[in-house]
Simulated scan of single mutants.
Amino acid sequence: MRPEMLTAVSALAVAVVTAAGGTVTTVIGRRQPRRPRGAERRDDFTAVTDKLGEHIARLEREAEQDRQQAEHDRARIGAQDFALRYIAAWARSLVTYMREQRLEPPPPPQPIPDEVRPYLHDISS
C-alpha cells in the first residue's frame, strides 16, 4: 500500500470514529439528566410510605369514629334498658294493685317472644 492510500484510510477511520462519538454524545445529551443510582427506588419508597401513612391516618380516624359511635350506642342502650325496666316495674305494680283490689289483670299478649321471656320473670305461660 502506498503512503497516500494509508493516509486516506487512516483519515477515513478517524472520521468514522469522530462521527460515532458525535452521535453518541448527541444521544446522551438529549436524555433527561440521570439521577444518582437508587434515586428511583428512594422515590418509590417515599411514595409508598406516604400512601401508607395516609391510609393509616384514615384507618385511625375511622377507628376513633367507631369508638365514639360504640360509646354513643352503649349510652343509648343503657337508657333504653333503664326505660324498659321502669315500664316493667310500673306494669308489675299495676298488676299487684289490681290483684289487691280482687281484679284479674288482662293476660299478656300471646305468644311471648323467646327473646323477651328471660326478662319477664313474673309472667307464666
Rank of each mutant, 00 (worst) to 15 (best):
L12V: 06
L12Q: 14
A13L: 12
A13G: 07
V14N: 08
V14W: 01
V14R: 11
V14A: 14
A15G: 06
A15Y: 04
V16M: 08
V16S: 07
V17P: 00
V17K: 12
T18V: 02
A19S: 08
A20H: 07
G21R: 05
G22N: 11
V24F: 05
V24R: 01
V24I: 11
T25V: 10
T25Q: 07
T26A: 15
T26C: 02
T26M: 05
V27I: 14
V27L: 12
V27N: 00
I28V: 14
G29A: 15
R30E: 01
R30L: 08
R31W: 01
Q32F: 03
Q32P: 12
P33M: 01
P33R: 03
P33A: 05
R34W: 02
R34I: 02
R35Q: 13
R35H: 04
P36L: 08
R37I: 10
G38E: 03
G38L: 06
G38P: 05
A39G: 00
E40G: 15
R41E: 15
R42E: 15
R42I: 14
R42W: 09
R42D: 15
D43V: 14
D43K: 14
D44G: 07
D44L: 15
D44P: 01
F45M: 11
F45I: 12
F45W: 09
F45S: 10
F45T: 12
T46A: 14
T46L: 11
A47H: 07
A47F: 06
A47R: 14
A47N: 11
A47E: 12
A47S: 11
V48Y: 05
V48A: 13
V48T: 10
T49S: 12
T49Q: 09
T49Y: 06
T49I: 03
D50C: 01
K51A: 14
K51Y: 07
L52V: 05
L52T: 04
L52A: 06
L52S: 04
E54V: 05
E54H: 09
H55P: 00
H55W: 02
H55K: 11
I56Y: 09
